[in-house]
């Protein structure tokens, strides 16, 4: 029995259209046109207990709308959504007591309060018994290494410290489900892996189900067994990270080191990705031309010092998908 079941979730917004120029601004005072934006278009998926799912898509694709609906703070137009047997937006208070949410861009802590007091207050809001709160907190403070900042007001924390405190805050009531929205955005190279390691451990050791929306594909590659891709409100792909590669035809890279820096290297089935001195990178799809055939036809024409073949990095795959979506 899956923990989260979403079926045919739909949501649309009305957006006012503004006309350009001074005259448009004056006319806008009298009449205004609206445009309907379909933020979610029949989105369905299921998530089992203990999964760690990545949720990606370009800006405005519907990621945060989905998360808001799952968190119970947004009521969709149609469709169903059952989280642990409840419809989130019908039983908001019971539902939110069982989830943790972290918005990377925005803190849930009190700006002027020392971190410790924010934690205590949240503990009271979630009605966590005092001794249990103390135990959970000791553990979280230890793992996240935030003992030194507990007595500082939140506004004085660095982004990385704040994010770790926010993570702790979202887990004080030991929720079985955790929503993370851009948890590594803007973080430094040391904080990022620390956050990832913490999320992984919460998932593996505590069995917390995690749904992670992000633009950082390192997050996805290092954490998620499964990734869902949404664009323009539609679910485009849902499966293991490798499936995402296949969704774009599993593009591969051929990197060549030439003897000679001046010759042009072209092939009908390959696309030039970059050219740097004697180094040439070509992209191709095995479905269109086999690796062996491509190498043969190039070595026939050019003198090659060295070559490597590899899968395209996931950033480029996703960037390619986003480009296609925007071009369409």
């Amino acid at each position: 029995m899956p923990q989260i079941v979403v079926e045919n979730l739909c949501k649309s917004y009305r957006v006012a259209v503004r006309k350009p120029g001074m005259w448009g601004a004056i006319r806008g005072v009298a009449s205004r046109e609206h445009r309907v934006v379909q933020a979610l278009d029949s989105v369905s998926f299921e998530i089992d207990e203990g999964e760690l799912v990545g949720y990606i898509g370009p800006n405005g694709a519907g990621k945060s709308t989905t998360v808001k609906a799952l968190a119970g703070i947004l009521v969709p137009d149609s469709g169903t959504c059952i989280v642990r047997g409840r419809t989130p937006w019908r039983e908001r208070r019971a539902h939110v007591a069982e989830i943790g949410v972290v918005f990377g861009q925005r803190t849930q802590l009190w700006w002027d309060l020392p971190v410790r007091e924010s934690f205590e207050l949240l503990g009271e809001m979630y009605r966590v018994p005092k001794d249990r709160l103390r135990r959970t907190l000791t553990e979280l403070v230890d793992v996240l290494q935030i003992a030194s900042v507990l007595d500082q007001p939140v506004r004085q924390l660095s982004l990385g410290q704040r994010m770790r405190c926010d993570l702790a805050a979202s887990l004080l009531h030991t929720p079985p489900i955790l929503f993370l929205d851009e948890p590594t955005i803007g973080l430094d190279a040391i904080s990022k892996p620390a956050i990832r390691e913490f999320v992984r451990r919460q998932n593996r050791e505590e069995g917390v189900t995690v749904i992670l929306t992000t633009h950082d594909l390192d997050d996805i590659e290092s954490l998620c067994s499964r990734v869902m891709l949404i664009a323009s409100g539609k679910m485009l792909s849902d499966g293991p990270v490798s499936a995402l590669r296949e969704a774009v035809g599993g593009e591969r890279r051929l990197t060549l080191d030439l003897e000679d820096t001046h010759t042009e290297v072209t092939h009908a089935a390959a696309r030039l990705v970059s050219r740097d001195g004697a180094r040439v990178v070509l992209a191709f799809r095995p479905a269109e031309v086999s690796t062996a055939e491509l190498i043969r036809s190039i070595t026939d024409k050019h003198a090659i010092k060295d070559l490597t073949v590899e899968e395209a990095p996931i950033e480029e795959i996703v960037a390619g998908i986003y480009r296609e979506i925007e071009g369409a």
Partner: peptide, 13 residues
């Protein structure tokens, strides 16, 4: 500021 969402995420009125 979009802070109202935060209040909705808590199990209180």
């Amino acid at each position: 500021k979009g802070d109202f969402d935060r209040l909705l995420l808590r199990p209180c009125s």
